[in-house]
Amino acid sequence: MITLKDVNKNYSSEVSIGPVDLEIPRGGITALVGPNGAGKSTLLTMMGRLLGIDQGAIEIAGMDITTTKSKDLAKIVSILKQENHFMTKLTVRQLVGFGRFPHSKGRLTAEDEEIISRYIDFLHLAELESRYLDELSGGQRQRAYVAMVLAQETEYVLLDEPLNNLDISHSVHMMQHLKDAAEQFNRTIIVVLHDINYAARYARYMCAMKNGKVIHMGRTEELMNNQILTDIFETPIEVISTPQGLLACYH
């Protein structure tokens, strides 16, 4: 479980995030949704301890992220941001291998190699594993990075807009992979999503943010509601029930 208590981040008197009190339960996918500038990415970045908090406390699996050593946290929580700098002359397999760094400190064992192969296969990257990162398309590179954070084998995985730059086919595949990872490997995955319909289809929980505050947190079915969504996005949204589940219409 991830617990946020009275978390604040102040940029200026007008721009601030919080206070946020939130509990994200274990298991499944939790989607962070909300309009631009709501603070979704910032909150995720703070949970992944890449950004300091000004007030309050965040606990992941009972460990306070500000006092726990970064290298110990790296075995419990992993985070992937949108923009990733990559080196030339680095293959997909070598990148995924970096995911084992918190465990092996760069000296890969036979067991590490097995884990690396498992996640490469899981994201269907086997054919590409000896390609250099700059020889891949944006979507393939995105998958390689996701394979890296999965290979880290942390209980909690935080992903900042993993569907950015992906077309429909790749978005669907990515979400299926994430859902499978959550179920097969018993992970808790928290994603920032812009398209609420992906959240509706794949997430177990949804957390809606607006103006730096969490407005609603609950099971996806509860949040997929005309009034709630219309309020959050300030756009008329109608939720319709389809054979595939709830669908938000806003065009």
Partner: peptide
């Protein structure tokens, strides 16, 4: 240094301050 060359955020994620 290899980890650092992946960028600040990736390095922090992997537990390298």
């Amino acid at each position: 240094l290899n980890v650092i060359s992946l960028g600040r955020e990736t390095a922090e994620n992997l537990g390298v301050t």
